[in-house]
């Protein structure tokens, strides 16, 4: 039952990514290309997602607990530090170079497009490299 619910939530997300055009790097890159072939669609994707999540979270987080778990697991870290900003800056550069973000690329895995596999392979390599770097600095 849990498996079906998680699958369903992932499916709604993946369908939304496909419908919205976030799955299409050409569209994502054109959002950022204000000086060229600008396509403002992405602002409407973000706007629609934020509106629903903002209202939904207000209702859901007013509850004492989620339906199937004992408590909400919300990020506790409040620090705005060099690691956060540096990481976000690197992510943005990679997003601008390739046109895929993780939320766009993971649903795209199901479309059978070779370019997606190259990107996700490199994404996974980057995640493991970052974890190794963080571990080396923590030791």
């Amino acid at each position: 039952m849990r498996f079906v619910l998680f699958y369903g939530i992932g499916l709604i997300f993946g369908f939304g990514i496909a419908l919205s055009g976030m799955i299409n790097p050409a569209k994502v890159l054109n959002f950022f290309d204000i000086a060229g072939t600008w396509d403002p669609s992405l602002a409407f994707v973000m706007g629609g997602a934020l509106a629903v999540t903002f209202v939904g979270y207000r209702i859901v987080l007013a509850r004492p607990a989620p339906l199937a778990e004992p408590r909400f697991q919300l990020p506790a870290n409040r620090r705005i530090d060099a690691r956060l900003i540096g990481g976000a800056a690197l992510f943005g550069v990679g997003w601008g170079i390739a046109g895929f973000c993780p939320g766009g690329a993971l649903p795209a895995l199901g479309a059978g497009v070779a370019a997606v596999y190259w990107f996700v392979g490199a994404l996974i390599a980057g995640i493991f490299a970052a974890k190794a770097i963080l571990k080396a600095f923590a030791d």
Partner: peptide, 18 residues
């Protein structure tokens, strides 16, 4: 795609999100 993918992987891990 490969360069962008590695940068995204590094960035989202350091920056804790996308």
């Amino acid at each position: 795609l490969l360069a962008g993918g590695v940068l995204v992987g590094l960035g989202v891990t350091f920056g804790s999100g996308c």
